[in-house]
Design a protein around this nucleic acid. Structure first.
Lengths: 200, 200
DNA sequence: AATATATCCTAGTGAATAAGTCGGATTAAG
DNA sequence: CTTAATCCGACTTATTCACTAGGATATATT
């Protein structure tokens, strides 16, 4: 249901990612697409294994790239998805959605949460001998903990239920510094009919 | 007092940034060095203007690069630093440290806070017409708000006072996923004596 | 058995960004 | 009038990102 790829030469229009947009604390497409995969799998939790081909088509994302991401999800310890090979194969969540936190997913896909490597999760005293005199350490550690807390207290099941209340306005008590407006959307060229018809 | 540059070919050792380290929600050197400049200026708040040459030497960062960053701080509206040109010139904070939030600094240096552009600060409804069916929007918006709240509720003055209590152990209730160990540090080759003697 | 449809695996690649570098112009203090 | 500083913009290089390519293997259906 989503049209959000990066490789869009003609019009350069995407959803979660676009080129040349200067924002901070970015999550790469690995994290974005990987979370999408997990949401899709959660949606089909009780059912036959779901193929990546289907996910790629519905989300309008490149299949070969998703294969790399799902590999990370499968090889994680403990694993997040299980696969069945062959025809009618596909992927399933290896646990129920309420047993999977978003922090787990994001860390598997993107690595530890840290604004910079001297503020990586866990013990930091080994990282930089200067840290005693480094006031900025405290700042980045606080940012890291805020993000980690947000991700670790939300499960995949929580996310599935959180689709309605956000529509009636977020708090939005922070200053809007950006002014992004996109008027059209990328429709991947497919051999058949595109089943997504965005913003006509 | 710090040795933390990126361009370190021989040994590849830095503080806040190192190459090839897979972490998520990264802040670039622009943000890191820029915050350092502000901390330095806050430390010298009541005094003669402080030259970038001095800051570059003390922090062991490239002067020409810092010039680009301080330009952002100066041209911001409202401005964060003011400059006086000529000999014995330099920079000063344009406000007292308790009137400057870390959020303001980071946004000036790095742009709006957003894990991805469809979760940029402010109104998001224009960004993606698919968002109704996009569960992941809620996740990234929450991450963004957590970061923004952390940065917006901390002033530069707060950061100056926060050097002691962090030493006696952070909460550290999050899982350590990384295991970063650095044994040595970069000492920039200077013509004279290096006044920083790290970890010897 | 053959075919179609999946997962699985490793390299490679082009574009974009990050992180500086370089050369010079302007301004003011001593 | 020399020195030390800010100011400015173009250029460069390394790294990372976001894929693409080309297969090998496994299994359900015909």
């Amino acid at each position: 249901m989503l049209g959000c790829t990066r490789a869009v030469p003609p019009e350069e229009i995407v959803c979660g990612h676009r080129k040349g947009e200067a924002i901070v604390l970015r999550v790469s497409t690995k994290g974005e697409y990987g979370v999408r995969i997990m949401v899709d799998l959660a949606r089909h939790y009780n059912g036959r294994p779901r193929s990546l081909t289907d996910i790629a088509q519905v989300e309008a994302l490149p299949l070969a790239y998703l294969e790399q991401l799902v590999k990370l999800l499968r090889e994680a310890c403990p694993s997040l998805v299980t696969s069945t090979r062959g025809a009618h194969g596909g992927y399933r969540l290896s646990r129920s959605p309420d047993k999977i936190t978003m922090g787990e997913i994001v860390r598997v896909l993107e690595g530890p949460i840290a604004p910079m490597i001297c503020a990586v999760e866990g013990d930091m005293t080994q990282v930089c001998g200067f840290l005693d005199s480094c006031k900025t350490k405290y700042l980045w550690a606080k940012v890291r903990d805020a993000v980690a807390h947000t991700l670790d207290t939300m499960t995949l099941a929580d996310l599935m239920n959180e689709s309605s209340e956000q529509d009636k306005g977020m708090p939005a008590h922070f200053i809007a510094l950006s002014d992004v407006h996109v008027g059209a959307f990328y429709i991947p060229k497919q051999q058949g009919e595109p089943e997504v018809r965005p913003l006509s």
